[in-house]
Design a protein around this nucleic acid. Structure first.
Lengths: 256, 256
DNA sequence: GGTTGACCCTGACGCAACGTCATCCCTGAT
DNA sequence: ATCAGGGATGACGTTGCGTCAGGGTCAACC
């Protein structure tokens, strides 16, 4: 006859990978109400396991329990809308998380280089980062079609990439500073420009509109906000930029 | 005489960019205790602003208010330790967030392709993703030195990159399937192999140890866990793999 | 029948960082 | 004296359970 295994809370919790308390909670919220024995004990069945796994799935992606209830009894369309909503919420969360991570990472390297082991440092860094994400001021250097590209790159920007990029640029800057006396037309100088362009392409994804924007941005460096200037301070050696410009010009005249 | 501006709660909250309630809260927690007028009104001074900004900075990176209190009165060393701790906490958070995002994104594309608009789909996807992050089983295919490289790549792995990579591979797979009748030694086939290798390098960062591991992984495909098989299903067309292998072999014999 | 474990039940408080009232007090202007 | 606009304190709400506390239930063993 219709046997069908049933489980007590403890066993059920174990096979589902949740705590007993969580099951109590879902029961209290009306999310998952098992049958009861005469004496009031909860008895879970296989079908309850299925529902519980769905609950866990939605919880995993951050849907609040209250909404889960509606979703589980709703139509597929509601599910689709919920997924869209969750994705944008998660993306927003990640933006903030990345900003925080970048701040911590920056502060740590700054501390390692021994620039005042103080909280004020952290505060300044966070200023910079918030300013970066409020990068409306940046938009005036980019044309509309380049802005969407810029947004796309910002979205895929992780602290690791950031740190990596900073290291690469920093190293290249150092090498160029060592080579300032070279002839901008020399092979060595040309090799440096090659690396410069490679980095720029890696950074901008080869989008020429973005390249134009960055050039405009650099040209107007006198009017940068203070926080951004601070951030760019390690790369503010004019001689390096001039050297790169001259070397690039030398290349063009050679190729002609 | 020692003037020094002071502010009422409202004004102070405004210039600091927090709510009045938050100031009350910090006061109650003993984090930021302003002076009081005779009648009990709070009066904030410039030095309070400085401290508040430090509080905000630490809160921004996710330090709990209780710990902030200790940090603000502590030594720089404590700050450094706190930063390290925060970073690992944030990284862990981000891992989970990325997993959730990947799940949602996968579910959305699957739904768009109309594969049962059901929550069970989401559950399966999450199974897969959790299995990916529990990727201990993967480690048997990689040597120890490759494992650290693998971890590094996992850390920088965002859902966007994931989605992008999947699209690239998916497109390439499709094209190869169209070209199965070509001669593996033909230029067209060789171009496809080039793209294949490019993607592989972009994916593995050119690490040859990782390449070996992936080869071992593919060779043992019969023993993959179910979840991973599901995930790999779109790329399970044996003919494509064979074609690539033959084309690569053809190249080697040509170059000889 | 009594006892012992092993389970199970229902409250109820706790946590983090405030948001949101509700109630009452101060202060300066009219 | 009155009134508007702040200010202060107290207390409950939020989210997803963890963690007791105080008591039932059940099957087995003596």
């Amino acid at each position: 006859m219709g046997a069908g295994k049933t489980y007590g809370v403890r066993g059920f919790a174990q096979i589902a990978g949740v705590t007993v308390r969580a099951l109590h909670h879902y029961d209290a919220l009306g999310l998952l109400k098992p049958r009861r024995t005469a004496s009031g004990y909860r008895r879970y069945r296989e079908s309850d396991l299925e529902r519980l796994e769905q609950i866990i799935a939605l919880r995993f992606i951050g849907v609040p329990l209250k909404s889960i209830r509606a979703l589980l009894d709703g139509t597929p369309n509601e599910l689709i809308r919920a997924l869209r909503l969750q994705r944008s919420l998660l993306e927003e969360k990640r933006r903030r998380l990345n900003a925080a991570l970048a701040a911590v990472a920056d502060a740590e390297t700054a501390l390692r280089r021994g620039e005042e082991a103080d909280i004020r440092l952290l505060r300044r860094i966070i200023e910079v980062i918030e300013m970066q994400s409020n990068s409306d001021w940046l938009s005036k250097y980019f044309r509309d079609d380049a802005k969407t590209a810029l947004e796309a790159r910002k979205a895929a920007w992780t602290p690791e990439l950031q740190a990596h990029a900073e290291q690469d640029w920093s190293a290249l800057f150092g090498e160029i500073r060592m080579a300032l006396d070279e002839d901008p037309a020399s092979p060595k100088a040309q090799a440096l420009v090659d690396r410069w362009n490679d980095l720029l392409r890696a950074f901008l994804g080869g989008d020429t509109q973005l390249v134009h924007g960055v050039k405009a941005l650099y040209a107007d460096r006198a009017n940068w906000p203070a926080g951004f200037k601070t951030k760019m301070a390690p790369f503010s050696d004019e001689r390096v930029w001039e050297f790169v410009i001259k070397a690039a010009a030398a290349r063009r005249s050679q190729t002609e």
